[in-house]
Simulated assay, not measured.
Amino acid sequence: MIDRRLFLLAAPVALAGCTTTGTSNPRLSALPPTLDPQYVKMYAAINDEPFPVPAVDISQIDPRFLRQEVAYSTREQPGTIVVDPNERFAYLVLANGRALRYGVGVGKQEGFNFRGAGTIARKAKWPHWTPTPDMIRREPDRYGPYASGMPGGEGNPLGPRALYIYKDGRDTLYRLHGTVEPWTIGTMVSSGCIRFINQDIIDLYGRVPVDTKVVVLPATGAAVS
């Protein structure tokens, strides 16, 4: 059961697309002249993990992509995760027309994105990462050295948590996961997975159980205005 009190505390506020690009976020003109201390606290360093989770420089991220409770109209039941690649948001649906909204990074090409309904069939802390054969084929120099995988830990592109999307009982190879490049949140940057700020994926991981429904809306590839 979702604890509404936790959401109120947050209110002010394929193994596919799991790679980094070094792209900076171009939409920073909306940043306020001073940073909200509640957001600074929300994205502070986490010191009780097996590996470091650094504080996020939120001045590098458009404020709309920071975690916050919002009004949200959907036919999906509370507890469902809805990902909108066009707007670069993921929603955890609440009751009474509300949702907890997270900014995300999505596939840099429309064909890289999973779409439709699936289920979180597995959750992992500090997950192991392996590039897919397609990723290695496209960029052998970049991904070939990791063909046997990378253990979880600092520098792993999946970050501190991963939620694994299955469909009809089969792994889709798409994940909801963290990132080593928080400034890319709000952009089309990955090879298809949905990346979150590390503090946000830790937050979402703690709120949803295995068998949670995930709906990924169709992506048009349009830029966020």
Score class of each variant (00 low, 15 high):
L158N: 01
F196E: 08
A162T: 05
G169H: 10
G169F: 11
H177R: 06
P127T: 12
W126T: 10
I165T: 06
R170G: 04
A147L: 07
T179I: 09
L158V: 00
P131S: 09
M150S: 08
T179R: 07
A117H: 01
E181W: 00
T119I: 14
A121N: 11
T187F: 00
I185G: 04
L204M: 05
R142P: 07
D141C: 00
Y174M: 03
G149F: 11
P140V: 10
P160Y: 05
D134A: 14
G149M: 12
D168P: 02
G149S: 13
Y174L: 09
A147F: 05
P182A: 04
G155H: 05
Y205W: 13
P140F: 09
T132Y: 00
P157D: 01
L158W: 00
P160W: 06
H177K: 08
L204Q: 02
T132V: 05
P140W: 10
D200P: 06
I194F: 02
N198K: 07
G118P: 05
M150E: 11
K123P: 07
L163K: 10
E154G: 09
D171S: 13
A117M: 12
F196G: 09
G186S: 02
D203V: 00
M188F: 08
Y174F: 15
A121D: 12
T130P: 08
K123M: 12
D171A: 13
T132D: 02
T187V: 05
P160C: 09
P145F: 11
G178L: 02
S148G: 12
D168I: 03
P131C: 10
R122I: 03
G153I: 12
M135A: 15
S190R: 01
I165M: 01
R170P: 02
Y146V: 09
L176S: 08
I197T: 03
W183V: 09
D203R: 07
P145E: 11
G149V: 12
M135Q: 15
E139N: 14
G155F: 04
A162Q: 06
W183A: 11
K167F: 01
T187A: 01
G152A: 08
T119D: 09
G152L: 09
E139L: 12
T130Y: 07
S190N: 03
T130W: 03
A117S: 15
G178H: 02
